[in-house]
Amino acid sequence: MADIKNILLVGVGGQGTILASKILSAALVDSGYDVKMSEVHGMAQRGGSVTTQIRYGKKVYSPIIGRGEADVMVCFEKMEAIRWIEFVKPDAKVVINDFEIPSAPILVGSAEYPQGIIEELSSKAEVSVFEAAKIAKELGNPKAMNIVLLGALVKALGLEAMDWDRYISENVKKGFEELNIRAFRAGMDAI
């Protein structure tokens, strides 16, 4: 299965990994790849830890990624990076959004948000860290954070040559095309 690429998007329910993965998979299908994608629905979405998994290649069987199989992992939230790190290959690229969302045990004070995540992961994997939320805010819309992260993901995958302006325009809300294209480029430049 060496020709298959595995991408893991991890984050917190409600962060909106869906749009980013929709744009990416539209581009991959259009380029002739076999593509499978998995998401979590239902109760797990209510502020819980969520993943979107995308696999593409000549022929893809399993719709989900096993431990030690992801080529690229994009973490929409920092602590999720350590929760899912076991799912990446030792030589994987890990893109981390430097953004914290404390979980319930942290909020009520029964646990502390782990410190030094970036330092530890950087010593063990190929990690790129940046503040997607800040970049999106500077561009004028904090909601474009996911498209900034998509830009970083595309760069990590080496898929810059595809017609991203078109795929983004076709999938985002009318009137927001230009903003999202700028967000995407900012994401590519960030790592």
Binding site: M43, G48, M79, I82, R83, P114, E120
Partner: peptide, 9 residues
């Protein structure tokens, strides 16, 4: 380092 649980809320 271990991730703190993130149960749905």
């Amino acid at each position: 380092k271990k991730a703190v649980d993130r149960p749905p809320t």
